[in-house]
Nucleic acid binder design. Structure first.
Length: 243
RNA sequence: CACGGCAGCAU
């Protein structure tokens, strides 16, 4: 099971779902019973390749056997959120709770991301508060919420959250900073973006190609070609591959 | 022993 599951996981990750399913069939003919981890890998592969319908069919099939665990639900919920079917995601979430599976930071993160994508910041905020109360505040969930606020043009609130997390001793990472830097750059707030850029480096966080690209685009849009080019040279000098 | 949530761009 472990050998086959490992291979199946590898193929699913590469998007070679057909080969993954061939291996599953091979398992069955050799009387190696796939377990929930095997199924989770397959369901996730289907979701990520955009085939939520097939993913759901497999999910229902193993539901009859009582197999799905918290990971399975999170995979399906995330799949629905990504394909903008947040309502179905919440339906499954309810089903998961009614089956006695406790929510963790992963499901909360997926649901919060879904609410943000829908523009439902109130609901995202509610879920976030609920998860904080349960002690699940994590860097990922902060990042999700910050990104959601940014996408809705609420940069002030996003910065508020950033300060908030620092106060709560949850250290922002390069994703956190890249997010806010990107959106401030889009707004043309290059002073703020530069400020955040220094701040992240003071925290010993390493900017990557995404961080640099956001700043470069921001400066370019304003016609600050010299600054943009200086940043380009800086990133190359640091050995960061421009893309 | 293996599986799940977060950032830019991708005409």
């Amino acid at each position: 099971v472990f050998t086959y599951s490992g291979l199946i996981f590898g193929f699913c990750k590469k998007g070679e779902i057909d080969r993954a399913f061939k291996l599953r069939d091979e398992m069955l003919t050799k009387n190696v019973e796939p377990n929930i981890v095997t199924y989770n890998a397959l369901i996730d592969g289907l979701c990520k390749s955009g085939d939520i319908v097939k993913a759901r069919q497999l999910f229902e099939a193993i539901l009859d056997k009582g197999l799905p665990n918290g990971v399975t639900y999170t995979i399906m919920i995330n799949g629905y959120c990504k394909s903008m079917n947040v309502a179905e995601a919440f339906r499954l979430y309810g089903e998961m709770l009614s089956r006695g599976i406790l929510p963790d930071s992963f499901v909360y993160g997926a649901l919060i991301d879904g609410c943000c994508k829908e523009g439902n910041l109130e609901k995202a905020q509610d879920l976030f508060q609920e998860m904080v109360q349960r002690g699940f505040a994590s860097i990922h969930s902060y990042n999700t919420l910050i990104s959601g606020y940014c996408k809705c043009g609420k940069l002030k609130e996003a910065n508020q959250l950033l300060e908030d997390m620092i106060k709560k001793q949850i250290a922002p990472n390069h994703v956190t900073y890249s997010t806010v830097i990107h959106w401030h750059s889009m707004e043309g707030n290059m002073e703020v973006a530069n400020q955040l850029f220094s701040e992240m480096q003071e925290r010993n966080l390493i900017p990557n190609a995404i961080t640099y690209t956001s700043l470069i685009q921001g400066h370019s849009r304003k016609g600050h070609v010299a600054e943009a080019f200086a940043l380009f040279e800086e990133m190359v000098a640091k050995g960061i591959e421009p893309d």
